[in-house]
Design a protein around this nucleic acid. Structure first.
Lengths: 249, 249
DNA sequence: ATATACTATGACGTTGCGTAATAGTCAAAT
DNA sequence: ATTTGACTATTACGCAACGTCATAGTATAT
């Protein structure tokens, strides 16, 4: 499917589709001969998800992260989106009420408090943002960024050395099943190194979230995948499994 | 009422209120001593209107023009806004349906065409824009601006001379009733001068819209009111009446 | 009198595209 | 065979509606 067709189908403009490609939100395959974009079934699927989330008021950057998060699940997304739409419907009904009452107030048949006159308009706060965080988490990203930023150059170099060695070892087993004993032992070591190296303790939850960060945040993903294609994905899954195992047992 | 209070009431940010003041959309009086903004009852009234129109997808610039248009009436606005909200509600219901069906399709309990999968998302086109134009009109503004821009300096000077004479005459009767015979005769002359002077024919509708432009567009209003305070208002009404009369008879 | 909460203006940044400008591609009609 | 029309690409600048500082003045409570 070409750009025009997708545009007509979705109600977006072709420029918007280009934009989504530019920012890496939806990058369809290209025709090798002419470089034209070719949207597959999967792309359309993803686009629908994007539109739903956009309707929920998420930024494109945020949607990108959500969809690329390996912990993301469609069922949860559907629940979230449904909840949003129902609230949205309620808000509109509230506004319709406000509208009717305002009309009557003008005619002198009714009277309203100032607060009542603006009922239904407040849509600055996004409650789904919080819910999405809890569902698929990523608050540790900023936390960790802050931590790194707080270190001296000397400390950073030490950290890099330790991490370099660690990631090389991990890269060698990146084709194993993330849930295998071999992988889990390596992750156990990783968990300990992390807690020793970085003056602060990682809870299992934070550790899992950190794994998420490896695939969600491009800056991390790129650096990690330098040790081997797919390492970031492997680590993300293995770390999640590790956290699940430890907290259960 | 100060900025913070209005912000909390309306759900807007203080910065947004500043912005509305900057662009001349909502400029409350200032406290003479400290320069603080002080929002009156009328300002809150206007703000509510602004929020309703914004909800309908109008740009702030557009809202500004609508509200400053003398033909603007609240009853019409309410109808428009109500219509919008009901459509919006319908769209949400459509999207909820799309959402449910998509979920079922994933489970394999249903199947959808591509077109169905995107039902409810298309909100690029704004049907109210057209309706608003018909209610209160202003498309001739740009048309006329383009026309003026296309003329040579020589032609512009000629135009100015003719208009200068015309407006001086009109300014003398600006206190008459716009619907009076005296006023209407003058407007008839004006209509003929316009059609002769500017190489293109003004339909009655366009002529009336042009009158509107005189009060809506600040650049025109200022120039016209130089001939006499209130001339723009007078012309706007008289031209509208003229158009109504001619098209009836 | 100083902390806290508000206010002002100015200026630059951001999101999500729109709008050309320029150039290449493809299919159909001449 | 080429011209036309509809499509595609990339590059680049533009814009609305604010957000986000920075800086500075004001009000008021402790």
């Amino acid at each position: 499917m070409n750009a025009k067709e997708v545009a007509e189908l979705s109600g977006l403009s072709v420029r918007a589709l280009h934009h989504y490609d530019e920012i890496g939100l939806l990058s369809p395959k290209r025709n090798a001969e002419n470089g034209y974009r070719e949207y597959s079934e999967e792309d359309l699927d993803k686009l629908q998800q994007i539109l739903f989330f956009r309707q929920c008021g998420f930024s494109l950057e945020r949607i990108k992260k959500l969809l690329s998060n390996p912990r993301f699940d469609r069922a949860g997304a559907f629940e979230l989106q449904k909840k949003h739409l129902m609230l949205e419907k309620e808000r509109i009904e509230t506004m319709l009420g406000t509208l009717e009452r305002t009309l009557k107030t003008i005619k002198g048949e009714d009277s309203m408090s100032q607060r009542e006159r603006f009922k239904g308009f407040d849509f600055s706060y996004n409650p789904y943002e919080e819910e999405a965080r809890q569902l698929w988490g990523d608050e540790t990203v900023e936390k960790s960024n802050d931590f790194i930023a707080s270190k001296s150059d000397r400390e950073k170099k030490d950290m890099e050395k330790v991490l370099d060695k660690l990631f090389r070892e991990l890269a060698e087993i990146r084709d194993e099943d993330p849930d295998s004993d071999l992988a889990q032992e390596a992750i156990d070591k990783m968990y300990k190194v992390f807690n020793e190296s970085f003056g602060h303790y990682y809870s299992l939850e934070s550790f899992a979230a950190l794994g998420n960060m490896y695939v969600m945040d491009d800056r991390f993903k790129e650096n990690i995948d330098k040790y081997g294609e797919g390492l970031a994905e492997f680590l993300s899954k293995a770390m999640q499994d590790y956290a699940d195992r430890q907290s259960e047992g």
